[in-house]
Write a protein that binds this DNA or RNA. Structure first.
Lengths: 113, 113
DNA sequence: GTCGTTTATGCGCTTACAGTCATAAGGGTG
DNA sequence: CACCCTTATGACTGTAAGCGCATAAACGAC
């Protein structure tokens, strides 16, 4: 990383890993995907994912701490939304990595006999 | 994600999360950073990180399965290397996210009084 | 005020995995 | 062959965190 040959500090490394840990849980990724469709309250997310209310609430607050989602309150209702494209960009990069890896494996198989 | 409004399949979501899980451990990120400096064997990585030999070996094989590192054997010695820039690109995106977030917070604080 | 609804949180269970130690496996050297 | 060096792996422990249940807190409707 850092492309200039320098190594990132342990603190930065820790922050990176914490951020990636957020995305290492399918449940949280799924919630982010659902919110990409548009702002929703927890009830709608329960319907879309099947997770328990408490679970969803917890995961959303984790994502909120990282600035990946935010909510505006309508009385007691909380409407959650995501206005950040980082996760989408990250996933696209990873997907490209998957594809390049598969193409490479395919080539190696084709090259033998 | 998918930017066309469609939601990725549960299987793809699972693969994404597994990949991010790899990066959710500071030890693995650090190993990747060390290998960015140039190919090394396990002994050199022990010296650079202070981790135990078995720990390093395990983490490297996890990274290898994901195609993030590979090793060429020199007799019994294993020289590990990373020739993929995905992780670096991912970290740069995340770092931009951090910076934008901090700038936004700064603006909000400046706007108040 | 009471009641119903929506979200947040304390508690407990359970699973996953980082990390260590000891050991095995594979290769070099005499 | 025996001996040493390097890496991989089985067994184990401790801890972090997902997940649900029950409950509390906050707000609106009556």
């Amino acid at each position: 990383m850092a492309s200039d040959g320098s190594k990132p500090s342990p603190e930065l490394l820790e922050e990176f890993s914490q951020f990636f840990r957020l995305l290492s849980e399918p449940a949280r990724l799924q919630l982010l995907c659902e919110l990409k469709q548009g702002p929703q309250d927890v009830a709608a997310l329960i319907g879309a994912t099947g997770f328990s209310q408490s679970h969803i609430s917890r995961q959303l607050s984790q994502l909120q701490r990282a600035g990946l989602v935010c909510c505006e309150r309508d009385g007691v209702r909380a409407i959650w939304r995501t206005d950040d494209d980082v996760v989408e960009d990250l996933c696209n990069l990873v997907q490209n990595h998957f594809m390049q890896r598969l193409e490479q494996q395919l080539k190696q198989l084709q090259a033998v006999p």
